[in-house]
């Protein structure tokens, strides 16, 4: 089961990082969301994978570790706040810059630059 778990974390990380490297803001937001799933699962698993062991007193003999759970819970909420902020930033950037590119402008086209320099000289 552990192996399946880490494979899932790996796949989520892969998709998250890949999307974060795209050039459009929306893809980056989706990527960040995906990455935060991966991070939350990663953090959560430091308490190991327990079945039937919710950390509620008197419900079970073998408690799952409550500390990573508490940390992950706040991480989820904070992660939401961060993603919300990035989304709104993207909207604001779209409104102010007129495009939804991460860099705020088209990637510099090296060929074009060389040509324009030649024209000047």
């Amino acid at each position: 089961m552990e192996i399946a778990y880490v494979i899932c974390v790996g796949v989520l990380t892969f998709c998250g990082v890949f999307l974060c490297l795209r050039g459009r803001t929306f893809s980056v937001v989706v990527g960040l969301t995906m990455l935060s799933y991966a991070v939350n699962l990663f953090l959560f698993s430091s308490g190991r994978l327990n079945l039937e062991g919710a950390a509620i007193l008197g419900m079970t003999d073998n408690y799952a570790d409550p500390l990573p759970q508490a940390l992950t819970l706040t991480a989820i909420v904070i992660g939401f706040a961060m993603i919300a902020f990035v989304v709104i930033l993207a909207i604001r950037a779209r409104a102010d810059l007129g495009n939804d590119l991460v860099d705020g402008r088209d990637p510099p086209d090296t060929n074009k630059m060389i040509k324009s320099n030649e024209g000047k000289s």
Partner: peptide, 29 residues
């Protein structure tokens, strides 16, 4: 890049979830 990072993250994750469990949470419980 994404694959390398994913590989590293998954490896680290596996490395620690397969380790014996030692926690400070007994105090909390």
């Amino acid at each position: 890049i994404a694959a390398a990072i994913a590989g590293i993250v998954a490896t680290i994750n596996y490395a620690f979830i397969s380790q014996p469990f030692d926690t400070i949470s007994d105090y909390f419980i």
